[in-house]
């Protein structure tokens, strides 16, 4: 009985349209996926590189700021408990620019999905 039903289903199974155009479209879609994948991988590598550079620069600047604060202490007249270095402001400004620039650089990534639109 089961085999009869199977045979009947097999006999009445619909035939899909021409496979050539289907395969061509599939190839085109897979090629597009590969382009997006390659772009995405490139973006991930770029982001990772930027992150490493920013991290290293942050460490260097942080170290430099700490070193100058220790090496060139200056007592501020208005705030007697705070010790400041003449290098404090240049290093602090550079650090702030880096802190603002880092997220900007990281978020500048263009979404790969824009290719799908």
């Amino acid at each position: 009985m089961e085999n009869e039903i199977k045979e009947f289903f097999r006999q009445t199974a619909p035939t899909p349209a021409d496979p050539t155009s289907f395969t061509l479209e599939l190839n085109a879609r897979l090629a597009a996926v590969e382009t997006i994948k390659a772009y995405h991988d490139r973006e991930i590598r770029r982001t990772r590189r930027i992150f490493l550079i920013v991290f290293a620069a942050g460490l260097l600047l942080g170290g430099a700021l700490a070193a100058f604060l220790i090496l060139y202490p200056v007592r501020m007249p208005d705030a007697p408990t705070v010790i400041e270095s003449p290098w404090f402001w240049p290093v602090a400004i550079a650090g702030t620019l880096l802190a603002v620039g880092c997220p900007m650089l990281l978020t500048r990534r263009i979404s790969p999905t824009r290719f799908l639109r």
Partner: peptide, 27 residues
């Protein structure tokens, strides 16, 4: 491919829709 398209065609009844689903599935 053929068996997948046939299954989807029988499942949804519309050849264009079935092929579109098959393409999506393969991607």
């Amino acid at each position: 491919q053929e068996s997948l398209r046939r299954f989807l065609l029988s499942l949804c009844g519309d050849p264009a829709e079935a092929d579109d689903i098959a393409q999506d599935a393969l991607v």
